[in-house]
């Protein structure tokens, strides 16, 4: 999906660059006679209308796919509690005591079944980004002190997933990670 977004961006960036180059060249070639653009007001109207409609369609398609609505009506097969701290993740099938955070040594999750992560922080803001075995983000949420963010996801591919902290949290932010297995 990320590469599709990169491709979309590159195509749009190339079109914009091309338009600016064509407009610049049309000016550089222009003689003293001022020709300009015919019916600029009409073209501006259509330009803005097309932009507005495109963004409207984009919003209409994407908003229902927001993570808040994913699997909202289903019951999770597994619940995992996550407490993030400088610079570790504690993960447990049971609720975690913030004064004595203890988690499981290994976490195993079922493939193609709904998993619910209940994510909080014991100190500062952290990120909870789940990377697939091929090192692409598949899902993420934030870990915020005083709040529990609920993330629901179905893992389609078995293997070892890595969690990285994606909110800058201090000196060892770059090494804050953990793993779990999907079978």
């Amino acid at each position: 999906m990320q590469y599709a977004l990169l491709l979309l961006f590159l195509v749009l960036a190339a079109v914009i660059a091309l338009v600016f180059i064509i407009v610049y060249l049309s000016s550089a070639k222009s003689d003293d006679e001022l020709k300009g653009m015919a019916n600029p007001l009409q073209k501006r109207f259509w330009f803005l209308l097309i932009l507005f409609v495109c963004l409207g369609i984009f919003a209409f398609i994407t908003i229902p796919r927001s993570p808040y609505y994913l699997f909202a009506k289903e019951q999770p097969a597994k619940v995992v509690h996550v407490a993030a701290g400088q610079f570790f993740f504690t993960m447990s099938y049971k609720a975690i005591n913030p004064d004595k955070p203890e988690g499981e040594m290994t976490i195993e999750l079922p493939v193609n079944q709904l998993v619910e992560f209940r994510v909080t922080s014991l100190d500062v803001n952290h990120g909870f980004a789940i990377y697939s075995p091929s090192k692409q983000i598949v899902a993420q949420t934030q870990a915020m002190p005083g709040y529990v963010n609920v993330l629901r996801w179905k893992f389609k591919e078995p293997g070892t997933y890595t969690v990285h902290c994606l909110e800058y949290c201090g000196m060892a932010h770059q090494v804050m990670q953990t793993t779990f297995t999907v079978k």
């Binding site: 999906m1 984009f58 994407t62 796919r65 980004a129």
Partner: peptide
């Protein structure tokens, strides 16, 4: 202006919640 608009396209892609789910803080 061209750079601003191209950056704006990158920003609009990221400002879409379902894309931000994959791109946030990358």
């Amino acid at each position: 202006i061209a750079g601003w608009v191209i950056g704006g396209v990158g920003a609009v892609i990221d400002a879409t919640i379902s894309n931000n789910f994959l791109l946030h803080n990358t």
